[in-house]
Simulated assay, not measured.
Amino acid sequence: MRKVIAFLYISLSVLFLLSGCNSNDADANENIFKFKDSFVGDNSAVGNIANQLPGSKHLNGFELKTNEEPYGIILNYDWTDSPEEYRETVIYNATFLFTLVQNVEWITFNSDISEYTITKDNLQEWYGKEFSNVQNEDELREIVLEFSEDENKVKQLLK
C-alpha cells in the first residue's frame, strides 16, 4: 500500500511539473508578427498564422493556391455562431493575413453561414492604407477595430 501511495505521489508531482511547462496562448499570440513577410507557399507559416487568429477553434483546414498567380488562401470554418461575429472575424483575419503574408492576393472564407472572397487591393482600398507599412500587432488591431465598428463600411466590403 505504501508503494502505491508513493507511486501516486511521484506521478502527481511529475504531472504538476510538466503542466507548468506548457506554453501560454497569450505568449503565442504576441509572436504572430514573427511570420511577417511569409509567403503563400509556406504552409507552416500560413497555418501558424491562421491558428493564432480569432475563430481558429472553428478552422477546419485551409488550402494554398500557388499553381498560378494571383496566389490565394482558402480558409474553411465550421462556423454556425453569429453571422455578425463571423463577418468581424473575416475582416480581422483577412487584414492580418494580407499584412503578414506578402504574396497573397485573395482569401476565401468558407463556412456554413456564408462565403466571402476578399482581395488585397479591395481591402487596402477599404482601409485607405497599405499593409506593408504596419509593423506590429497593436497598430494593426487598432486599424481593424476602427473600421469594423462601422456597419455600413462592413456591408460595403462584404457585399
Rank of each mutant, 00 (worst) to 15 (best):
Q52F: 15
K159P: 13
Q135D: 12
G61F: 04
N22G: 14
I118R: 02
K159C: 15
A26V: 10
R87I: 02
A45M: 08
K34T: 14
D150E: 07
A26W: 13
N133W: 13
N31V: 14
G128N: 08
E68Q: 08
H58N: 09
I5Q: 10
D42T: 01
Q156D: 08
L59M: 01
V134N: 02
F7L: 13
D27E: 12
N76D: 08
T119S: 01
G61I: 00
E84R: 07
A94T: 03
T117D: 05
F39V: 06
S148C: 06
E88L: 13
W106N: 01
T66W: 03
S56Y: 08
N24H: 14
K34V: 10
F7V: 09
A6V: 13
F35E: 04
S38K: 04
S114F: 11
K155Y: 07
N110H: 10
F62L: 14
F96M: 03
L8I: 09
E142R: 11
G72E: 04
E85T: 11
W126S: 01
E149T: 09
D27F: 13
F16S: 14
K155S: 09
T117N: 01
M1E: 11
V14E: 07
F7D: 10
V4H: 08
R2Q: 14
S38P: 02
L158V: 03
V154N: 05
E105C: 09
N110M: 11
N48T: 09
I32L: 06
W126R: 01
E142T: 13
E151L: 11
S56H: 09
T80C: 14
I32T: 02
G72H: 07
E130K: 05
K155E: 09
N136W: 04
K129F: 09
K34F: 14
K65S: 11
N110Q: 11
E84F: 11
N24I: 10
K155R: 09
C21L: 15
W79L: 05
F131A: 05
T99F: 06
Y71N: 04
K65H: 12
S132K: 06
L64H: 01
G55R: 02
T108G: 04
E115H: 06
G47C: 11
S148E: 07
Y127L: 09
T117P: 05
N93H: 02
R87N: 01
E63N: 15
N24A: 11
V134K: 03
E63C: 11
K159M: 12
I113A: 05
L64S: 02
V90L: 00
V46W: 00
E149W: 15
N67I: 10
K34L: 13
T89K: 06
D138P: 00
D37G: 03
E105P: 04
V134E: 03
N110Y: 13
L8M: 07
F131N: 05
T95I: 06
T117Y: 03
D150T: 07
E146A: 12
D27M: 15
L17A: 11
K57F: 08
E115V: 06
P54G: 05
S19C: 12
S148F: 00
S38T: 01
E63S: 15
A26Q: 15
A94F: 04
E30N: 15
L145K: 12
Q135M: 07
P70G: 06
D138Y: 08
